[in-house]
């Protein structure tokens, strides 16, 4: 049985530079390579990685805002990659997106009402009065006043704008929402508000989410499964509990180690913090792309790229030397007890 949303062998390459009439282009970025995963109705998949990992591109490629170079995205058995833009239109109703920057994702010269009704208008859903009523109802569900309909987004804070963006995404009653770092520019308290709202909405409307973030804490709050991306490849994918309890890829472990102790439940670090920054995707390292920063790298890692393989049920990792399951190590001595206090 194939999953509801089925991503198979997705590949995205970008041509770099202008590539003008006379000049040749300066190379290609392999933004995504051989991405496989599935998503069921009502499920949330978390995509996590640093900037340059390709996580945003993956979200956009699923919605076909970016053209995949190879591979397929199937929704309910229909291969979206094979559709023309016209044939694609009805499927766009079912899949919506919330962008990272709420100050960039809505036209400041449109009223909030126009913004929320835009997808309905473009999809030709309902009459004007019905659309207006629906938009107002959505605003109220987001905890905003329906008088906001006639105001401009410039009058709202980042957190409120992001709720307007969610209202817009929900206007066509979609089944899948791609959430591209929807809370990364917000205060912790605003982030909590958005995360709770998303959690409630998922229950009410049987939504599936693809939640993209660099913050493992926020992803774990919403996602049942998490895929970790590094330089355009999935390096580890597992159910949330498994991934957090026993990360197998050193990169996943590093992402956890980098979190404040309070967030990572006071556990000791698995590994020393990786040095340097994520390499440029234009010239990815040979072999395992993480070997240049990996504290456990061996000569083999630089020569041979590890393929994704199963380590336990639903848990796959691409590493020659995955971390052994450690269980929960005790809180190390000398650590103040309040770190571990949940609260």
């Amino acid at each position: 049985m194939k999953p509801w949303l089925d991503v198979e062998g997705l590949d995205v390459r970008f041509t770099l530079g202008e590539g003008g009439l006379l000049r040749r282009s300066q190379g290609t970025i392999h933004a995504l390579s051989d991405i496989h995963f599935g998503l069921e109705r009502g499920e949330t998949m978390g995509l996590i990685g640093e900037s340059g990992s390709g996580k945003s591109t993956l979200g956009r490629a699923i919605l076909r805002l970016v053209r995949p170079t190879a591979g397929e995205v199937r929704l309910g058995g229909v291969n979206l990659s094979a559709l023309s833009e016209r044939e694609m239109r009805p499927y766009r109703q079912q899949m919506q997106m919330v962008f990272q920057d709420p100050f960039d994702s809505m036209n400041a010269r449109m009223t909030v009402g126009q913004i929320i009704m835009e997808p309905l208008r473009l999809q030709g859903i309902g009459r004007t009065g019905e659309r207006r009523e629906k938009a107002a109802a959505l605003l109220e569900r987001m905890g905003l006043d329906r008088r906001a309909m006639h105001r401009y987004p410039g009058q709202y804070s980042g957190g409120q704008r992001q709720r307007i963006a969610i209202a817009r995404a929900l206007s066509t009653a979609p089944r899948l929402l791609v959430l591209d770092e929807p809370t990364s520019g917000l205060d912790v308290s605003m982030q909590a508000r958005i995360l709770n709202l998303l959690r409630d909405l998922q229950g009410e409307m049987a939504l599936s989410y693809i939640f993209i973030s660099h913050d493992l804490g926020a992803v774990a709050y919403l996602a049942q499964r998490i895929a970790v991306l590094y330089l355009g490849r999935i390096v580890e994918i597992a159910p949330t509990g498994t991934l957090i309890g026993a990360p197998a890829h050193p990169y996943t472990a590093s992402l956890m180690d980098a979190l404040p102790l309070m967030v990572r439940r006071g556990e000791a670090a698995h590994l020393p913090l990786p040095v340097g920054e994520s390499p440029s995707p234009v010239h990815p390292p040979s072999g395992c792309a993480f070997h240049t920063r990996c504290p456990r790298a061996e000569p083999r890692c630089g020569m041979e790229r590890p393929s994704l393989r199963s380590v336990s049920a639903g848990h796959q990792v691409a590493c020659h030397f995955p971390l052994a399951r450690m269980g929960n190590p005790p809180t190390p001595a000398g650590l103040p007890p309040y770190y571990a206090a949940g609260g």
Partner: peptide, 23 residues
């Protein structure tokens, strides 16, 4: 308290975050 409980923690992902309404 509210600020502290607004932080998602890996140990208890199922526990609801506290969010304060308004600005």
């Amino acid at each position: 308290q509210a600020l502290l409980h607004a932080i998602p923690r890996l140990a208890k992902p199922e526990e609801r975050l506290s969010d304060i309404d308004g600005l």
